[in-house]
Design a protein around this nucleic acid. Structure first.
Lengths: 161, 161
DNA sequence: CTGGTCAACTTTCCTCAAGAAAGTCAGGTC
DNA sequence: GACCTGACTTTCTTGAGGAAAGTTGACCAG
């Protein structure tokens, strides 16, 4: 990230983390991938990012090993999909922490609704980031759904393969 | 943030959260404030940010009510300090989640060392973001220290007044 | 009361990323 | 052979990032 100082070699882990995560698009892209939207155009439509920026970010995420680029066939064509690595799937607690904070401290706009994070293993809504507040088990993609009432969807996440 | 899309009115809480937090400097500034470095020049020295950017970020953080600007007297002068509001102090779990992720998934450079987050109430190191992994109690600034061996410091955080 | 220091900004300037829109290219279809 | 589409890349303008210098208003020393 040359516009900004490079923190990838910083002694402090928080700065090293923010070197990758301190970009508004990175989290959104990773979230879409964990929601199963893994193709270039699916991600673009769902988060409203420009082609150029998405292309750069995907390259960065592959370089940083948060995503792997995989070829597959569907509709009699070759497609590419971006699959979360373990490092990518491990962003889940950060996403939860952000969503908990935002639910508490940002103003919900007209038409919004409470987003629940459901731990499907025990069936309860969790109110903590990394371990289920109900059963105490670690929250892993695959066991977690995000319930978005304003979209009337409840999507289960998918983790590293 | 006009260079980027405005997400402050988005229905999705994660996007609303990232509208503020998806900036590399915001978290670092907030961390310094929670560590007790609350004056303009203290923050600038400790994170290496330019005056212009720090000034803009502080104004944003006051507008967004993550910080309050407070006048006080010391050394026979009037100073200003930036104090975390409750919304600001509640960023702590996100910082923990980022540091846990970075410790696990970024390469520690030469001279680095493991950073421990200590829950002073029970004395144990916690490995989760929002509730102490040892005693289960919620982690609040004031009860948490960050142990940075490469700096040979262990600093207790300070929360909202 | 004049000059100087210091905290806390603000301004200036140049470079480079963001985002919109249009272009490219290869594989596959009609 | 013309057309479509997925996955980018290129082009262009606007505006943020960062370094450095300037500003302002307390406070102090002589």
């Amino acid at each position: 990230m040359p516009l900004r100082s490079d923190w990838s070699e910083d002694l402090c882990p928080v700065r090293r983390g923010l070197d990758v995560l301190g970009d508004p698009w990175i989290m959104l892209i990773m979230r879409e991938v964990l929601h199963g939207r893994r193709r270039f155009d699916e991600i673009r439509e769902s988060i409203g990012i420009s082609d150029a920026v998405l292309s750069r970010r995907l390259r960065l995420l592959v370089d940083e090993e948060l995503l792997r680029k995989v070829e597959y066939r569907a509709d009699r064509r070759t497609h590419f999909e971006y699959v979360a690595t373990e490092a990518g799937a491990d962003l889940l607690p950060i996403m939860h922490a952000v969503s908990i904070w935002a639910e508490k401290h940002t103003r919900m706009p007209e038409g919004g609704a409470h987003m629940a994070v459901i731990h499907e293993t025990c069936g309860a809504e969790t109110t903590t980031a990394d371990a289920c507040s109900e059963c105490g088990e670690a929250l892993r993609p695959g066991d977690v759904s995000w319930d978005k009432p304003w979209k009337a969807t409840r999507e289960r996440l998918v983790g590293a393969p």
